[in-house]
Design a protein around this nucleic acid. Sequence first.
RNA 1: GCGCCCAUAGCUCAGCUGGACAGAGCAACGGCCUUCUAAGCCGUGGGUCGGGGGUUCGAAUCCCUCUGGGCGCGCCA
Length: 561
Amino acid sequence: MTKQDIQRIIDSSIKAIVRNRDSFVDFPESIEVEVPKRREFGDFSTNVALVIAKKLGRKPREVAEVLIQNFPKEADALFKKIEVAGAGFINFFLRDEVIIEKLKEINRLGGEFGKSDLGRGERVIVEFVSANPTGYLHIGHARNAAFGDSLSNILSAVGFDVTKEFYINDAGRQIELLGLSVYRRYQELFGFEVDMPEDGYYGDYIRELAEEVKEIKGDSLLGEEESRAVEFCKEYAKDRLLEEIKKDLAAFGVVFDSWYSEYNELHRPLNRFGGKSRIEFVMDKLRQAGAVEEREGALWFKASDFGDSQDWVIIRRDGSPTYFLSDIAYHYDKVERGFKRLINVWGADHHSHVSRLKASFKALGLDDSCLQVVLIQFVRLMSGGEEISMSKRAGSYVSMREVMEEVGRDVMRFFLVMRSSESHLDFDLDLAKKESSENPVYYIQYAHARIGSVFEKARERGLFPSDKHLNLLTLPEEIDIIKKLIAFPEIVKESALSLSPHKLAFYLQGLASDFHVYYNRTRIIVEDFALSSARLYFINCIKTVIKNGLGLLGVSAPERM
RNA sequence: GCGCCCAUAGCUCAGCUGGACAGAGCAACGGCCUUCUAAGCCGUGGGUCGGGGGUUCGAAUCCCUCUGGGCGCGCCA
C-alpha cells in the first residue's frame, strides 16, 4: 500500500461522491493527497474540500463532512479514522495492521526495496564531470561527480535506462595551451629562458609532465619543428591527465559507461557522413535551416532567432570551430543515439550556455524539452573557519585526490550531495575529518552498524528475526518508523524527478536519528521471545533501507564500526 | 547596463509544483554508560523566513519592486 494506492482510493471515492451529488462541478483532474508534516493530521491528507467548496458555493468544512459521510465502506479496512480538520482538510489515519504488514514487503524485496518502474525503461544520458584533461580534478569536479553519479543511481532505481557519459574536451584551444605549456617547461629543463603562454597552465604538474616527456624523449624534441614538438607534448599530457582523472573518479566510486572523445567523434571525418566530420554534418544542417550567418569574417549561429539573448560565433575567422559548435554536434549526436532525455550536470558558470544550446535544438528541429541542465553551484573549501582559495590556472588548488585522502570517500561523497545543487556549498574540512556524531555520515553509518551488532548479540542467544508476531510492534515509535520506511520508495522517486539527491540524504539522516532514539529507549532483545523476534525483524528492515539509501549515494554501509 | 541563481535560528542548510503553530545538524548550556557499540540519547534557550507591495480562503513558497551577495554577458572552455 503505497501513497499512490491510497491516492487512487481517495481519488476515486471522492470523485464518485462528487459526481453523484453535483455532476455539474468542474472537478480537478486529480485529487491532491499529501503526507502531512504533523502526525496529528494523519497519514494522508487532502485539500479537495477547500478546492471545490467555492464552486459549490458551500463552506469547505461542510463539503468535507459530506465527503466523509459518503466514503465507501471498503475504506474501513484501511483507515481507522477519517476526519475533517482545520480549514476543511480531510485527514486519513491508517490502521496499524495495514502499516505493519508492509514490513514483510520490505523484507522480501531486500536490496530491491525502493526501486520502481517510474521511468519505464526510458533511455536517459547523464553527462557529468566532463572536465578538460588539462589538470587534476578539484573539489568542484568532485561535487559534480558525486551529484551526477548519485543522480544516475537514483534514476536507474526508479526504472530509467541510464548511460553515464564523460565528454572529453580533447580538441581546441585549451588543449593546445596545455601542450604549449608543457613544451615550454620542457625547454626550461634544458636551460632555455622561455616565455610561458599568457593563458597557459602554471601548476607544478606541468613541470612534472615536462620531466616525463624528457625521460621519454631526451632532448630530441628540441631539434624538432616546434609545432610537432608541441603536438607530442599535447598528446602526452592529455593522455596522462585523463588517466589521472579516471583514477580519481574510480577511487571515488564513479564509473562511467562511456567516455566520449570530442576529437574522435566530432572532428574526425566519418564514413557515414560521406567523409565529413560530425561537426561539418551538423554545420550543414544549421546552414540548411538558415540559422547561420557570416559576419566580420566569422560564421555565427543566430541564436537570437531561437530564443537566446544573443548570437554566437561557431566558426572563427581562422576557420576553426568554437567549443559551442562542438557542443551542438555533440548534443545532436546524443539525440541520434536514441536518448529520450538528456541530463547535463554543469558548473554554474556555464549557465548562459543553456539557452544557446536550447536554441540550437530548435534550429535543428529538435524538441529542446528533452534537455535538462542541472547547474551545480560552487564549493568553498573551509578550514579553521577560513576559505581555502583556489585558482586552477595558477595551479594553486587543493585537488579532489587530496581531500579524498584526508577525509575518505564516504564522507566526501555524502558531504557533496547533502546540499541542494543550487546552493553554494561550504565543505568543512574540520567537520569532515571528525569521527563523531557531529559528522552526519558516521551518524547514519553508525545506525546501520548498531543494528548489525544487535544481530550478533541476538545470534549468540539463539534469537532470530521472524514475522510471526509482528502484531507485538505496538509502540508509537515503531509505527512511526515503519511509516517512514514505507515512504522510502516515494523519497527515491521525488529525488529522481526533481533531480535532487540531497532529499535522499536528508531522509537518511532523519531515519538514522529515529533509530538512535528508538534504540536508546527500547531494548530489542528482551525476555519475551516473540517480541524479540518481531523487533529484530523490524530493525532489520531499517537496516535494509539505510543500506539501500546509502548505496544510491555511493556511500558504504559498514556492518561494524 | 542586461541575464540567471541565492537571501530562513549564532553557523551550515532543509522546506519553496501555495496549505493547517517555521524544521534539521552544528555551536551554547544542563543531564544519561555494571544492561543489545556513548561514533549514541534526553532536556533548555534561540527566527520581523533580507525590506516593501500584490495575487489568494491561505504565501517562507507565486508576481512586482528595492537592498545585499554569487555567477555569466569571448572569434576560452
